[in-house]
Design a binder for these strands. Sequence first.
DNA 1: GCCATTTAATTCAACCACTGAACAAATAGC
DNA 2: GCTATTTGTTCAGTGGTTGAATTAAATGGC
Lengths: 418, 418
Amino acid sequence: MWQCQGVKATAAPAGAVRQGSLRELNLALVLGRIAAAPRPPSRAALAAETGLTRATVSAVVEDLVAGRLVTEAEPTPRAGAGRPARGLVLAGDGPAGLGLEINVDYLAACVVDLSGEVRHHVVHRADLRPVSAADALGRLARLAAGARAAADEQGLTLAGAALGVPGLVDAAGQVRLAPNLGWRDVPVPELLASHPPLAEAVDGVPALVVENEANLAALAELHAGAGPDNFLHVSGEVGIGAGIVLDGALYRGSRGWSGEIGHIPVRPDGPPCRCGGRGCLERYAGQEAILSAAGLAGADLPADTAPTRLAQLAEAGEAAALDALHEAGTALGVTVASVVNLLDLDTVVLGGGYAPLTPWLRPPMLAEIDRRVLTAAWSPVTVRPATLGATAAAVGAAGSVVRRIIARPAGWLARVGS
Amino acid sequence: MWQCQGVKATAAPAGAVRQGSLRELNLALVLGRIAAAPRPPSRAALAAETGLTRATVSAVVEDLVAGRLVTEAEPTPRAGAGRPARGLVLAGDGPAGLGLEINVDYLAACVVDLSGEVRHHVVHRADLRPVSAADALGRLARLAAGARAAADEQGLTLAGAALGVPGLVDAAGQVRLAPNLGWRDVPVPELLASHPPLAEAVDGVPALVVENEANLAALAELHAGAGPDNFLHVSGEVGIGAGIVLDGALYRGSRGWSGEIGHIPVRPDGPPCRCGGRGCLERYAGQEAILSAAGLAGADLPADTAPTRLAQLAEAGEAAALDALHEAGTALGVTVASVVNLLDLDTVVLGGGYAPLTPWLRPPMLAEIDRRVLTAAWSPVTVRPATLGATAAAVGAAGSVVRRIIARPAGWLARVGS
DNA sequence: GCCATTTAATTCAACCACTGAACAAATAGC
DNA sequence: GCTATTTGTTCAGTGGTTGAATTAAATGGC
C-alpha cells in the first residue's frame, strides 16, 4: 500500500540504544563519510577521520560491501612508500531512488543512484490543468513504470519513491490544496495504489512519500552543492514556494506546510489575492504579475518558456521588462529581508522560473536586504541562482530516497538480508 | 576563562560511536524520561517505556544515583498486588544552573535545579542606560555571587551559567549590538573574567554562555509548559524580539541572530526606523509606539510598569489605549501571519510586556492571521500569553544549563568522578 | 496466619561490537 | 634483495546489553 510520511531523515536514535544500534550508528557514520568525501577514501583514512579503529572500519565496510552500498575502486597508486590504499566509493549498482513530479505543465520522473547521479530522467510536457487528478496520476504511473524498467536495465534496485506536487500535502499523502493545478483533497496514494511501481512500505518508511515540490527542490539544492547549512530556496513557478533548509536539514513545519512564502504580505493594504489576504508577494512577484507588468499579459506563453522570454527581453534592454523585474525583485527583497531577519540565513537561492532571471532580480533584492536586515552589516547575504534545472523537485525527490538510505543504511541492509 | 557558545544541546552523537557512547546514550535516554515523566517512574516502567531491559535500566540508574542526578523517592504504595515500585526523581541537591539577565531597566539572577525548580531569584531594578557596560556587569557579578552563595547554602552545585542580553551576541560571547542598552561591541566574557563565579569551561562547554534574551525566554517557555514543539515566542520589551522553537529545539540561526522580528517590514514605505529600514514592526508595536499612540508619550513611565498601566487603561475602556492596542495587534498579526506562513507554526506565545496585554492584542492578531495564513482553515493558530513572568530570560538561561546536563549526563558524571 | 500470586529489582552467564596490538600484504627507495 | 612505510586483517580482551533465573516485597484468598 502506498502511504506517506515526512522526508526528513532523523539520524539520531530516538529510542533505546541496544547493542546493534552501535553498529547501525557506525554504519551510518562510515557510509556518510564515504558519500561526503571528495575522492574515494581508504579504510585507514576513514578510521583516522572518524576516530574508529581500523579494525572496526574494516568490519563496517565489509557489511556495507556485502549490502551493495559500497564498492572498492581500483587501487589508487600512492605517492611515496606503503601499501596502496583501496578506495571506497558508493555503489553504482545498488539501491536507487525514484523521483516523481507533477506540476502545472509537465510531469517528470527520474532515477538517482546512491552517489546522487541521475541515471534516468524523463519529462513529459502537457498542460495538466484541464486533466483530472486521476488521469494525471495515471500518466505519471506510466512514467514511473518506464523509470523502473530503466533502473532494472542498469542493475539498480528501486528502494523507494517520492513525489513532488505544487501544493499542501497532509501526513497521509493526500493533497489538500494545489491551487494552480485546481486540486483539492486528492488522495494521491489511493489513486496510485492501482499502479504500484514499488513494493510495500518497508521498515516504517512508506513506499511513496508525497511532498511539496518547493521542499524537494530545496533538498535537491542541498544535496547538489557543497552549499551552506542554512538557506532559503525560493521557487518561482506559477505560484511562489520556498523550501527552508536549517542546520543542514529540510525544515517542514509541524504539518509539512512550511515555506508558503507566496502569501506573505508585502503591502498589507495592497491588491486582494485569491488566498483571501491582501498584498501578498504573489501579487507582486508571481509569474502572472511579472508578465502583465512587462506587457506580456495576453501573450499566452507556455509557463516554462515565460522566464526565458522575459530574460531575452531584459537582455535586449526592453524597458517594460526591466521595470517589471525591478518591481518583482524589490517585492522579493522585502519578503526575503523579513525571512532573513527572522531566521538568520546567509544564502538565498533562486530556483524554478526565477533562476534565469537572477541577474535582474538580484540587485533590487540585495538593495532591500541591505537596507532592512539588521545583521547585514556583519555578514552579507548571498543571492544566487539554483544549480539545478527546472525539474529540480524530481531530482530532489529521488535524492531524498537515497539520502535516507545513506543516513540509515542498517534498514537497507536488513532488507537485502545480507 | 569565560567563553561563549551556543545553547542548543545536540543529543545526537556526531562522531564515532564507541562502546562507552552506548552507555552515554542510555544515560541520556533514561534521565530524559525521568525528567519528562509526570510522576516518579519506577525502573520497571522506564524499561517498558524505553525498550531497554530492566537489567540495563538498573545499571544506568545506579550510575545516575551515584552521580547525584537522581534520587529515589519513597516507595509509592501500589494499587493491587506486587512489590511496590521505587519512584525515581531528579535530585534536588545535585547540579544546578545559574541564570543571569541584563536588560534595560533591571538585572536578574536565578538558580534553577535539575527538576527546573527556581531555587533562588533576585531582581535588581535600575535604569542601566546611563551606566557603563563594565559597571553594569560589575553589579551583575555581585548578583551572581549572591546566587552562588544561595546555591551553596541549599547544597546545590552550580554546573554552569548563562546570561541573557537584549541584543546580538557573536560566537565569542561578545555583544555586537544592544541598541536599547546603547551597547556596541562589548566583550562580556572578558569584562566578567575578573569576577568569575564559576570554574573554567568544562568538557567543551564554556562556564558562561551569552545569549539573546528573547531566545532564552522562548527556552523558558519550552521547558515550563508541556507545550507544542513548534512555536514563536514574541517578547515585547523596549524592542521586539522573538525566540523560535522548531521541532522542540531553539533555533538560533547560523550565527545565533535569529528572531529579529522587530525589524520585519510591516509597510515597506512606512515611517523610517532607526535600523535604517522603513515601516518596521517596532514602529507599530514597539513599546514607544504603543505608548505614544495611547497618549502616554511623555508620561515617562518606568519600562516595567508601562504594560500594566496600559492594561489598566484598556480595562477601563479608555478609547485611546484600546485603539493603540488594536493598531499594535494588527501590525503584530500581519507579521506573525508571515512567520506562520513561512514556518507552519501552531502556536504564538506573547511574552515580556505583551503578556498582560494579550486580551487586547489577540483579537486583531487572530483576525489578520485567519485572513492571511493559507493553512489557517485546516488548523487554527493559537495565540496565548507566556506562562512565566517578566524575567523569563533569566529562568530560561538557568534552565538551559540544567537541560544540557539532562541531555548529556555523561559529561557531568565524568566531572564528579562517579 | 499462611500461601499463592503479582510486580519490582538484582544477579549472572552469554553475546555482540569495539579496542588495541600484533601480523600479513603491498609498494617505494636504496 | 632488504628496509621503511602504509594498508588492511586477525585475534584476544573488554565494556555494555540481553535474557533468564532469582530474590524481594507487597496483596489477596482461604
